[in-house]
Write a protein that binds this DNA or RNA. Structure first.
Lengths: 218, 218
DNA sequence: AAGTGTGAAAAGTTTCACAGCG
DNA sequence: CGCTGTGAAACTTTTCACACTT
């Protein structure tokens, strides 16, 4: 989900006009392609990939066309080449360092989550108001006191942060992150963060997601 | 995020044509209204609510107009009444029972998460392939063996499920859930689930969300 | 024959602008 | 005057349809 604020952070670095939602889909395509590659598949058609990704085949073709001309008519797309292109478009620099703030229940679960590394992100440090108690959770990532946040971010040139602090602290911490140079925040607090237009916030609001599906049960 | 499949599960129960994205926003408005109510505010204008929710004022008015005529011109909206209307629209039956499958790292964190109850959902039971080891996490929700899943869902008429099992098991478990009568799934596995058109799947894909903001750092 | 690339239509959403009410 | 309710405009995203290539 993108941030609500009307004015988006323009579009990213170099790449031009890629529809916002296409960014998500490209990640999904990449995953599907990985699976195909593992199975030794060398070429895939838009309709096959569409079935795997749960979208329409035209959409696949449109999305891939944003990256350039990769397909061969009558045949399909080369799995490996296409994966590379998606990675180039999405995963700016490989192994982006990420910090996590708030090593409570959810924060610790995320620190243990293997999925991030697999996608090229490394959570290099966590910060908490009570690092001692967080340390008791036996995490593989060092947990520092939150007061050291700014110093670390500046020194390590961290641009991405995962925010898992209680709602009441979220805005204050976000301000500090931005001030220190963070450019994008994955926010798990159920709070609408206010940040400058050139900072991206992506809200993952668990209660809201549950409420949303609740609407669809009769 | 809604499910990819082109054909949505129609729109929900009784209520008519509420744009998909408006459903999310109504939840956010509800939260903002709660905060106002706590502060003793009785009336709020679209522009004030807009600022709190991080959206455009017209959007607020359009969204609220879907619920009926609640505003007073020159004044604004009555906070309490509006909250009630949003609850009625969104939270079909109060205290929907929910089950969670997969009490691993993430699953346990979600079981400890307080936000769900606050929004009117109660996680009544969890299921895991290894309930003994899950029990060691000292959760307040009973963790049963996954083999008892169907029986429980049928008996308790559960319609909502949170799915946190490893990717490889997700589709198989989803099939069982649907078979047993679950109508909506909040899916945390990085997998595109295939379900009948009348079942709603809402994917929360953590790695994908991180990848998404990664795109926006220069 | 199979399957891409793409312009054009359709659908969905957001914003504008303003009439009209309290 | 302030603020809602809403038709119409603007914009975004998805789907269709088909020419074109291998």
């Amino acid at each position: 989900m993108q941030t609500p604020p009307p004015d988006l952070p323009a579009h990213a670095p170099g790449k031009a006009d890629l529809p916002k939602k296409a960014i998500y889909r490209l990640s999904i395509y990449h995953r599907c392609l990985e699976k195909l590659a593992v199975n030794g598949v060398a070429t895939v058609s838009s309709s096959t990939l569409a079935r795997a990704a749960g979208v329409n085949a035209s959409q696949i073709r449109k999305d891939i066309a944003y990256l350039g001309q990769y397909g061969t008519r009558g045949l399909g797309y080369p799995v490996g080449t296409l994966m590379g292109s998606i990675r180039d478009t999405l995963g700016r620099e490989r192994f982006q360092p990420v910090v996590l703030i708030g090593a409570g229940n959810l924060g610790s679960a995320l620190l243990r989550y293997q999925g991030f590394e697999k996608e090229g992100f490394q959570v290099v440090a966590a910060f908490d108001a009570d690092p001692e108690s967080a340390a008791r959770r036996r995490l593989s990532v060092p947990v520092h006191h939150e007061s050291q946040l700014e110093e670390f971010i500046v020194r390590e040139k961290v641009k991405l942060a995962i925010l898992c602090v209680p709602a009441g602290f979220a805005q204050a911490v976000a301000n500090r992150l931005v001030e220190a140079g963070v450019q994008a925040i994955l926010n798990f607090s159920p709070v609408v963060l206010e940040v400058p237009a050139d900072v991206t916030v992506n809200n993952v609001d668990l209660a809201l997601e549950l409420e949303h599906i609740g609407y669809f049960v009769r």
